[in-house]
Design a protein around this nucleic acid. Structure first.
Lengths: 156, 156
DNA sequence: CTCGATTGTTGTCAATGACAACATTGTGCC
DNA sequence: GGCACAATGTTGTCATTGACAACAATCGAG
């Protein structure tokens, strides 16, 4: 039993082609990262016509879903640092996709909105994002994609 | 039916506390990245006593599982660029954890091995890594962790 | 042998996350 | 009202990571 335990814990199948990954097989983070990299790569490629990166896209969607909120609120929602969000917004503002207005209730904060240009752009962006999601479903299978989404969504 | 479709596609629950994330709810990449960041953060924190980062850890495990292989083979296995792996190995070599020997069959390539120090360090590293994985199971639940692992492992 | 491919290395650039400092403004407390 | 402390947005800096290009040395096919 002791030897069986040891064997079960240390032996890993070495595929004929390529190398084995050893105990990485037991690490969720490894596979999580590999898939995440694939997903982001595909997203960047698919969204290249609009030159939108994942972080920018997430900011646009959250502003769309919560117009008029402050940068701090957006940053907290997306777990982005305020400093980083400020720079992201600077780019989006230069592209005329968002506008910062002075908040009526708090002179420190800015209220964030999509501009008309931003809404138009987001419409096109969403079409590409949908295509990306379809490609992802093709890569890992629609069923597995939904299972992963359900599992991960529960503690966003 | 048309209105129902539209409602199902555009309305999102806005939680009482915090902001909604809009159509990000439908993007696997978003949740994938959030969990991956949590996992890596916890890994880095837990492994801090050994000052090992995820990439270094993965390299050590793959060398352990495939001693004597070339940098190109390791890089391909982990989908790391040769350039990046070279710099990673420089650090590991300075810490006396790995050794590069001239390959007998190919003068261009190096054969990679763990040193005795490297094996000893890896033993301690694995203990911390196991602790990290336990913490992850505590965070998302052991059952969900296993489900995610099974789902993700199928197309490493 | 010659030409193209492979291997390891170095340099550079962009994106990202982390931290610190700062001016401005809000809030709680006396 | 006045004061200390917190929050907000901004800028600067640093480290990590991935991507790409160039290079010398070497291999392999023809």
């Amino acid at each position: 039993m002791r030897t069986a335990e040891k064997a079960a814990a240390t032996e890993w199948p070495t595929p004929k082609e390529g190398l084995g990954i050893g105990q990485l097989e037991n690490h969720l983070g490894y596979f999580l990262r590999r898939l995440q990299i694939w997903v982001f790569q595909d997203f960047i490629q698919t969204l290249r016509p609009m030159k939108v990166r994942p972080a920018q896209y997430s900011v646009l969607l959250v502003i769309e879903a919560n117009p008029g909120r402050s940068q701090a609120a957006i940053a907290q929602t997306l777990s982005i640092e305020r400093a980083r969000l400020a720079r992201l917004l600077h780019v989006l503002e230069k592209r005329k996709w968002i506008s910062r207005r002075a908040s009526a209730s708090d002179a420190r904060s800015h209220s964030l909105y999509l501009t008309n240009d931003g809404e138009k752009a987001l419409t096109r962006i969403k079409i590409l994002a949908k295509r990306h999601e379809a490609q992802l479903a093709g890569f890992i299978g629609p069923r597995r994609r939904q299972q992963l989404l359900d599992l991960l969504r529960e503690f966003g």
